[in-house]
Design a protein around this nucleic acid. Structure first.
Lengths: 193, 193
DNA sequence: CGCGACGTTGATTTGCCTCAACGATTGTGG
DNA sequence: CCACAATCGTTGAGGCAAATCAACGTCGCG
């Protein structure tokens, strides 16, 4: 396993010394998943925090009518996990599935706790990551309660141009909270103007 | 200013020693706001992270039609701030307003950075706080894209029973993303069964 | 007292969903 | 290599959820 992708990522937040990089090598493991394979299934405990080195994944819930709702996508340099399950040990209600065949570097929850205790610097890094994720999530909440589906779709195109080519419109529809049929109608309206 | 509410709060996460408590005393200041006063107005930079000792506040955005949308409420032992503005120094697009006359303990952004550097323990505490907030925010996103207004309202009653008595239905409507008129219709339906 | 915020009602309109159907594309197994 | 199923994007008809707008009574507050 090549530690560089992780080292590069963390170094953008805080430079790491050799000891820290060496420790990362001992606790992260590489995992390859093919399209449509799962990193996590509802009912299981999320034991891994996954850093995406290559590929694309999505995390979603299934409601009581059997419909899927995308909470998050993750491509290169994103992290993906069910935090509630990972940190609190609860059975997850989410699925993490590979949209493309992917390579992820994974750390077990207990090893992440060790990392925080042994190298407090990572508390700081993960605090900042979490802050950024929370800022984004709060913006999404405000969007959901204040905007129409068309506005949410345009905003998605704006915000995630790199994702748009890699995932289907059905998946985007599920992320912004509309049916594929209605997203299709939105797209038609948009080309007409 | 009585440091105990803060000390009690932090101690639930990690015990503090005397040095740390003393430092908190030097960087937090008490602020009293009366009903309808603002801690933050859109356009200003959010300079304070506020811990609520007594009272109730709300944070909201105003859309381009002049409508308000509540992002968050905060009562005793909650924190309230615009994180994007506070951490990145950007002008805020949010308002923080006292729903009741309130007492908050505030820390300036630069002092919070000092706190993180001088006492790394607080990186860990605030990381955990942030994780919990993110978990809640993600659940709210999933609710918004998967549930009806009635389900969201019932869930709000369940999740925040202590808030229900203290804020108006109009404010709750704005939080779950419906008009006050429609919330009224929902409530009528609910009493009939 | 008088004003403004609040909760409510009803009529109408709009945004979005449901369901069924179709062609195009992709993937799979024989 | 072909046949077949599965997935995807799209269209249209109809229906429901929620917004809009206007109006009214109540209450608390200045």
């Amino acid at each position: 396993m090549n530690i560089e992708p992780l080292n590069t990522f963390f170094s953008k937040h805080l430079p790491l010394d050799e000891r820290e990089v060496d420790f990362l090598k001992t606790i992260f493991t590489e995992n390859r998943v093919r399209r449509r394979q799962y990193l996590l299934q509802a009912g299981d405990v999320c034991q891994f925090n996954s850093f995406v080195v290559e590929g694309c994944l999505r995390m979603y819930m299934v409601d009581d009518q059997g419909k899927e709702h995308n909470l998050q996508f993750a491509i290169e340099n994103w992290w993906i996990l069910d935090m509630e399950s990972f940190y609190l040990g609860k059975p997850s209600s989410l699925y993490i599935e590979a949209v493309e065949s992917s390579i992820v570097y994974q750390i077990k929850n207990e090893d992440q706790f060790k990392l925080f205790v042994s190298y407090p610097k990572f508390n700081r890094i993960f605090r900042v990551l979490c802050e950024n994720a929370l800022i984004a999530s709060q913006k999404r909440v405000l969007q959901n309660i204040s905007s129409t589906a068309e506005e949410r779709y345009k905003h998605f195109l704006d915000q995630y141009p790199k994702l748009v080519n890699r995932i289907s419109n059905t998946q985007i529809a599920s992320y912004i909270g509309v049916t594929p049929e209605f997203l299709s109608a939105i797209r038609k309206r948009m080309t007409k103007s």
